[in-house]
Design a protein around this nucleic acid. Sequence first.
DNA 1: CAAAGATAGTGTAATGTGTACACTTACCCA
DNA 2: TGGGTAAGTGTACACATTACACTATCTTTG
Lengths: 242, 242
Amino acid sequence: MSEFHYNPHISVDCVIFGFDDEKINILLIKRKQEGENVYALPGDLVQKGEDLDVAAARVLFELTSLENLYLEQFKTFGSPERTSDPVDVEWIKSIREHPEARVITVAYNSLVKTEDFDYRPSSFAEEVLWHPIEKPQKLGFDHNEIANTGWAMLREKIKREPVIAFSLLPEKFTLRQLQTLYEAIVGQELDKRNFRKRMLRNRFLVPMNEKETGVSHKPAQYYRFDDLVYKEEFAKDQWFLF
Amino acid sequence: MSEFHYNPHISVDCVIFGFDDEKINILLIKRKQEGENVYALPGDLVQKGEDLDVAAARVLFELTSLENLYLEQFKTFGSPERTSDPVDVEWIKSIREHPEARVITVAYNSLVKTEDFDYRPSSFAEEVLWHPIEKPQKLGFDHNEIANTGWAMLREKIKREPVIAFSLLPEKFTLRQLQTLYEAIVGQELDKRNFRKRMLRNRFLVPMNEKETGVSHKPAQYYRFDDLVYKEEFAKDQWFLF
DNA sequence: CAAAGATAGTGTAATGTGTACACTTACCCA
DNA sequence: TGGGTAAGTGTACACATTACACTATCTTTG
């Protein structure tokens, strides 16, 4: 796809969250410049006539082969200086015709089930990796600010609408996985009995006819998230808050 | 200021909220086109080298002469079709050199104390008016979508961070005014005693040595909002939720 | 095959929070 | 001075949150 198809002034960047049964990670791409590694968020210029949400979904699809992911625009970054670091300018020169142009970027949060994820090389990513959100990592452009803002927005949002957390879990999961996920998000340990009590009164959490196998302790019940029950009964209510 | 100074691809639009002791209004501008009135949100193209937040503050200042208003970016609208209604195209032609350009707009919510407000004519507004947020009004471009989204975001935000409501009230106010404001925002009546009980346990709400005068009933105590006390003691806590 | 190791799974009592509800007070005005 | 009007006040009940310790069930190993 030639640059002719792109709007050189607008890009999208994606903060893609995944959960590895222990902590929250974000997906970074690595670009190679003269031996030094520079990490960045996946993103791309918006194409001419392309809607913003579509552009973000396209970036995600090119990277993960996944469609219909949880995707939410959270903020637009437009500082005139945001792409003027010399290292970044050099990188832009290597891939675009108008490196001097001011680019405003619309940032999106996305949630993926790690089990579904199988990344493939893409036009803008030489290498892709999961990076723990809590571990500092210098990123190119203003991507540190973007990632930090996205993470803060996600934590706020999940308090208000905890159901989006299920986008980070496999189809079947144990209550222990669910609790670990919430602990990773709110950043503190939660009481097991109270957590279960609150969760299990939500009817959209349905037990499956299946238990863990191959574990050297009492096997856990598998549950699934029933989207229909949620929409029918809980859509308007706030069902619990931390 | 000539168009030379503007970035023809990015604009800001402001949803400006005010409270008239009864209901919430938003500030609209009226443009005159061949006798028919078309209403729109105040907004403008972003200038070259101008930060987005600065552009929004500039639009507000040009319209209200007020600075340091509550101002929060809430969403960016970038549908390729958003400025293609014939009536809007005609309007754009009359004020800009490149009417065909795709313009992406960054939308901001703003809160003003109506008492401070004294609008003046500006380059983009022939006439300015307060319009009740609950009363339907067709707006140009995609401004209905923008205003509705802004209102929804404000209502959500104020549940999480109720303190921003004080940006809509005068320096001194009664608890009745405060309650009416909350009722306008949440869209339902609240119990007087419970409302007071919850409010008065917040130490940043401080009674003044002053009461209402000239009312034909028991005069109400005036209160003020103490920003310092709020920041010191309540910044990290959620102090109440509806 | 029995015991040890590991995590799943369970209930209750105390405290705190939200909700519903009706009368008295203080001022103005006629 | 009495009537009109909105301000201001407290209590009882229901519900939600919190703190906390033992038993159940599986695998592994000696």
